[in-house]
C-alpha cells in the first residue's frame, strides 16, 4: 500500500541519516544520560529519595530528550526542499508525517526505552524484574513524540526555529506525564502493568494518534505556502 511504503521509506531514510552523519541518535541518549546524572546529584545519594525520584526522572528525561529531537524534526526537510517536493508530488503527506514519527521513535525513543531499566538500577529501585516498566515508558515515548510532532509542525510553519515547540506541546504533554509517572511508579512498586493509570495513558496516546497526524499535515502544508 502506498501509505505504508512512504512511511517505511521516510523512517528508513531518517534512521540511515542519523546513523551516517551528525549522530542524531547519540544526541538524544547523551542528553538523557546527562540529565539523569544531574537529577541523581540533585536528589543526593540517599536511597529513599532516589527510589522515589526514579519514575519522575525517567519521564522528565524522556520528555526533554524527545522534545529536543522532535523540535527540529521537520526543519531540515523544509530547508533542503524534500518536504516541498513531497507536498507537490504526493496526494497526501500523511505517510510522510507518520514516517517522521516512526523515525523519531526509533532514533530517540528506542535508546531511551532501553535505558529506562538501567536508570532504575542506578536509582536504587530494588524490583527484581525491571522490564516491567518498559510498557509504560514505551507508551509514553509514543505519546510524547506525538505531542511534540504537532507542536513541531506548527513551529516549523511559523518559522519559529524550534522556539515554540515546548510551549505548544506543554498542554498536550502534561496529561501524558501525569498518567505516565503514576503508571511507571506502580509498575516499579507493585509490578502492575495494566493499571488504571496505564489504561488512561493508553487512552491519551490513542487520542493523540487520532488527532496529531492530520493536524500536523495541515500545519506543514500551510508552512509551505
Amino acid at each position: 500500500m502506498a501509505l505504508r511504503r512512504i512511511v517505511r521509506a521516510v523512517a528508513q531514510r531518517d534512521v540511515v541519516l542519523s546513523l551516517a552523519g551528525g549522530g542524531g541518535w547519540l544526541q538524544g541518549i547523551v542528553f538523557y544520560a546527562v540529565f539523569v546524572a544531574f537529577m541523581a546529584f540533585a536528589f543526593g545519594p540517599g536511597e529513599d529519595a532516589l527510589r522515589r525520584a526514579a519514575a519522575p526522572t525517567i519521564w522528565l528525561a524522556t520528555l526533554f530528550a524527545i522534545q529536543l529531537a522532535a523540535s527540529e524534526m521537520f526543519i531540515e526537510d523544509i530547508q533542503d526542499g524534500s518536504l516541498q517536493t513531497l507536498a507537490v508530488e504526493q496526494t497526501s503527506l500523511l505517510g510522510y508525517v507518520i514516517g517522521k514519527l516512526a523515525g523519531v521513535l526509533i532514533i530517540v525513543g528506542g535508546p531511551l526505552i532501553v535505558a529506562a531499566p538501567i536508570v532504575s538500577i542506578m536509582f536504587a529501585v530494588g524490583a527484581t524484574n525491571l522490564a516491567i516498566l518498559l510498557p509504560s515508558v514505551a507508551m509514553g515515548a509514543l505519546a510524547l513524540s506525538l505531542a511534540a510532532c504537532v507542536a513541531s509542525a506548527i513551529n516549523a510553519a511559523l518559522q519559529g526555529g524550534g522556539r515554540f515547540t515546548a510551549i505548544l506541546a506543554a498542554p498536550l504533554s502534561i496529561p501524558v506525564l501525569i498518567f505516565g509517572i503514576d503508571a511507571t511508579s506502580l509498575a516499579i512498586e507493585s509490578s502492575q502493568i495494566w493499571s488504571v493509570e496505564m489504561q488512561f495513558l493508553t487512552a491519551m496516546t490513542l487520542f493523540l494518534m487520532a488527532i496529531v497526524p492530520g493536524f500536523s499535515v495541515l500545519a506543514l502544508r500551510l508552512g509551505l505556502e
Binding site: V150, P171, I174, P175, I178, F179, F200, M204
Partner: peptide, 14 residues
Amino acid sequence: LVGFINVPIVKFSV
C-alpha cells in the same frame, strides 16, 4: 481546536 479538545483532558488528568 487542539487546545480546546485538550482542556477537558487536562482537567480530568489533573
